[in-house]
Computed example of a mutant assay.
Amino acid sequence: MRIKIRFKVVISLRIALVCDDEPIIRMSLKNKLLELGFAEIVECSDGEQAVQLALDRLPDIAILDVSMPKKDGMTAAREIRSKLKIPIILLTACCDPDTVQRAKESGISGFLAKPFREHDLWPAIELACAHAEEVEILKEQIDDLKETLESRKIIEKAKGVLMKNQGLSEPEAFRKMQKLAMDKRKSMRQIAEAILLTEA
């Protein structure tokens, strides 16, 4: 019986990468993914192929077996995640603490236990996508915070240079930088960097 899928995360995905050295598992996954609404399933049987296909075909999600020839699923996942910000689900028969820890370090977004059960697939995909999205949002927030802190340091340094070189008070130096930023339509950081180049 075919199920009509209404889950918003699943139907927004089009290409899936499936990597397992057991053809019967690949076929089962492929059939279920097509039923869930994926337009294309990219298949392979070893970790090296998985990395290469991921970079070539740019899938929306990858499902990798933990134990594969040439390159295991953890290593392949880490390499894929370093280039593509896609959710990766790990197929494994063993969920011991060491495997879970390695999975976290490799950027794995979810697990599917072997033997694979078809009705477990869409919840795993939904949760993996939600987890991957949360991780990317957190990374962006951290990057934004780092950028803000770095900008603040540069602005403070430039303000100090103006105070020293032009005999300005701290509020005067800050106002001068603000006026320059408005007049030149530049950010405060850009003005601060220019001041450090010309005044230092």
Score class of each variant (00 low, 15 high):
K4T: 09
R6Y: 11
R6P: 04
R6Q: 10
F7V: 13
L13V: 14
R14N: 15
I15T: 15
A16E: 13
L17S: 11
D20V: 00
I25F: 03
S28F: 03
N31W: 00
N31Q: 07
L36E: 10
F38S: 11
F38T: 01
E40H: 01
V42A: 10
G47I: 00
E48F: 04
Q49G: 01
A50Q: 12
V51I: 05
V51S: 11
Q52F: 05
A54L: 00
L55F: 08
D56L: 14
R57F: 00
R57T: 01
L58V: 09
A62E: 14
V66E: 11
V66Q: 08
S67M: 13
M68Q: 06
P69F: 00
A77L: 07
K83L: 05
I86C: 03
I89S: 01
I89Y: 00
L91V: 01
C94H: 09
C95H: 06
C95W: 02
C95M: 11
P97T: 10
D98Q: 13
V100K: 14
Q101S: 07
R102M: 12
A103F: 12
K104I: 11
K104E: 07
E105C: 07
S109C: 13
A113Y: 02
K114M: 08
K114V: 08
K114E: 04
E118P: 04
L121S: 12
L127A: 15
H131V: 09
E136K: 06
L138K: 13
K139P: 07
L145D: 12
S151H: 04
I154M: 04
I155E: 05
I155T: 08
K159C: 12
K159F: 01
V161K: 15
V161P: 04
S169Y: 08
S169F: 02
E170P: 08
F174P: 01
F174L: 12
R175C: 04
K176G: 15
M177G: 06
D183G: 00
K186E: 15
M188Q: 10
R189D: 02
Q190R: 06
I191S: 10
A192N: 06
E193P: 01
E193A: 04
L197A: 07
T198I: 02
E199I: 02
